[in-house]
């Protein structure tokens, strides 16, 4: 039967039927490797990330790569047109994606992309938010929780300052109050966790199949 890995990071979602499941899996791996490499390069540029132990760097990246990619590629989800453009450049309609098995997650991914887009983040805000997504001290397996927490706090403080600065009108002296935009942005973190869990379940089902 046809094997389909309907992931936007997959160059060939419709697998060659002559290939074995193992070969299809390896092709998929080759498709997303450049994107993962970019996430690692991004992490290396987060001030303080390289000072963490190598195991903690790996743990954060293993746990957070999907979430970083979801933020980075959320613009591939066209809410208005109800389409998703894969990294190959191919654009698929909702019906096509559902037929490819991308059903349950799809709505949640569109919803996330839409909500993130409404915040109209600048590239600087998006970069800092992505760093906050990656540096989460509550990922399981972190060895030096204090070090990761410290870095996480620094990043959240910087993001808070940046977002509040661009949102609060000049002359407004409510320095202790966060802008609704910042609050909404932080609320995207649990949304990303939920998507990450759904994605993991999807991967498990593929592997078991």
């Amino acid at each position: 039967s046809d094997i389909m890995l309907a992931c936007p990071m997959n160059m060939q979602p419709h697998a060659d039927p002559s290939k074995s499941p193992q070969e299809i899996w390896e092709d998929f791996s080759l498709s997303f490797t450049p994107a993962v490499k970019e996430v690692v390069e991004f992490a290396k540029h987060i001030p303080g990330f390289s000072s963490l132990t190598q195991n903690d760097q790996v743990t954060l990246l293993k746990a957070g790569t999907f979430e970083v990619l979801m933020v980075r590629f959320s613009s591939l989800f066209n809410v208005k047109e109800q389409t998703v453009t894969f990294i190959s450049g191919a654009t698929y309609s909702l019906e096509e994606l559902r037929a490819m098995g991308m059903s349950e997650m799809l709505g949640a991914m569109f919803d996330f992309s839409h909500k993130l887009a409404t915040l109209e983040l600048s590239s600087e805000e998006l970069g800092l938010f992505t760093a906050v997504v990656l540096v989460s001290a509550d990922r399981s397996g972190i060895e030096s929780v204090l070090s990761v927490e410290q870095l996480q706090e620094n990043l959240i403080r910087a993001l808070r300052s940046l977002v509040n600065k661009s949102t609060v009108a000049p002359g407004n002296n409510h320095h202790n109050m966060d802008s609704p935009r910042f609050t909404k942005l932080l609320l995207k973190l649990p949304d990303l966790r939920t998507l990450n869990n759904m994605h993991s379940e999807k991967l498990l089902s593929f592997r078991i199949d």
Binding site: S29, V36, V58, S200, R207
Partner: peptide, 27 residues
Amino acid sequence: FSDPASNLGLEDIIRKALMGNLEERPE
């Protein structure tokens, strides 16, 4: 199959990229 990230070979890719020697994986 308790760890999807390991199933994907993600850890291997990440470790190599962190060390700056990510090479083309053989097909």
